[in-house]
């Protein structure tokens, strides 16, 4: 039997879960894009998310910039990082074996994580701004303001990307490329240049995702694996090639996390998520493996 208190607790968990789910969608989009369109599994994805968090931290500490502004700044900054990574490494890797590609990206992970430890040490950081500990209360349901803002940023970015992929000719070309690479090339599409664009966009979403995560959670240079796990889970459940399915999967993971943290001690969230991951891989794995026939 649910008392009114636990019911409002449940509703609060639901709302929080949906907000969190939007952020999880954002941090998963990049992984889904590079995998679905370029066939590249970016194991370094979560280190880019982590760099996004530190960008927000640096901009706040040095220039006093609000994370909302940092989220905007992160778009061009991380787009550029993504373009550089693609040009320097990914484009080379695409022509070699899958093993080489994975090793190179693993190397990127090691370099970024190591550099982050050198620069920021392994101390845990938090972004604290004026509204950090404030919350809105509606009908007895409290919603943390930073979480609301982070979710709003995530929602805007997800919608923008979806519109871009659906409605612009470049977006259609990117989708065409993911559906049939050779047919796209013989239709005159320069798939090398589009890969640059895709990796740039994927990295930009990771960077902004990092900013939004930093508004909600404390962070350090090494706990990004958690986000890699979450993002991978969202991709496995949501499948490739559809932002809407990624969004649904992201919301689902957000809900599962908040609901299970109401019911179980915090660390159990990890096991529930791992269990989900295993089940999802067993159920959907072959589908993912099928789309994975080319290169990396």
């Amino acid at each position: 039997m649910l008392t009114t208190v636990s019911l409002s607790l449940l509703v609060q968990a639901l709302v929080n879960g949906l907000l969190l789910g939007l952020v999880y969608t954002l941090i998963s989009l990049g992984l889904s894009l590079t995998l679905g369109i370029m066939g590249v599994v970016n194991v370094a994805h979560s280190t880019l998310i982590m760099l996004g968090s530190y960008l927000a931290l640096e901009l706040l500490q040095r220039l006093g910039l609000d994370p909302i502004i940092s989220a905007v700044i992160a778009v061009p900054v991380f787009f550029l990082i993504g373009v550089l990574l693609e040009r320097l490494l990914i484009s080379r890797v695409a022509r070699t074996s899958q093993t080489t590609g994975l090793l190179v990206l693993f190397g990127v992970l090691v370099v970024i994580e190591g550099a982050a430890i050198l620069r920021w040490t392994t101390d845990t950081q938090v972004l604290s701004v004026s509204y950090t500990n404030t919350s809105l209360t509606l009908d007895g349901i409290a919603i943390a303001v930073p979480r609301l803002i982070a979710a709003a940023i995530a929602l805007v970015l997800v919608l923008l990307l979806d519109t871009f992929l659906r409605s612009t000719l470049y977006g259609k070309a990117i989708r065409a490329m993911s559906q049939n690479l050779d047919a796209a090339r013989i239709s005159g599409i320069d798939t090398d240049r589009l890969s640059l664009l895709v990796f740039g966009l994927a990295t930009a979403t990771a960077g902004v995702g990092g900013v939004t995560l930093a508004m909600i959670f404390p962070f350090d240079p090494q706990d990004h694996y958690r986000w890699l796990a979450w993002a991978f889970l969202v991709v496995v459940i949501g499948g490739l090639g559809s932002i809407r399915n990624t969004l649904l999967a992201g919301l689902l993971i957000g809900l599962i996390e908040t609901l299970s943290s109401v019911l179980f001690p915090f660390q159990y969230v990890y096991f529930i998520v791992y269990l989900l991951l295993v089940v999802a891989l067993l159920v959907r794995g072959q589908g993912l493996a099928g789309s994975q026939s080319r290169a990396l």
Partner: peptide, 10 residues
């Protein structure tokens, strides 16, 4: 090209 080469989801 040989075989199917439309972009099926477009």
């Amino acid at each position: 090209p040989q075989g199917r080469s439309v972009f099926p989801e477009l």
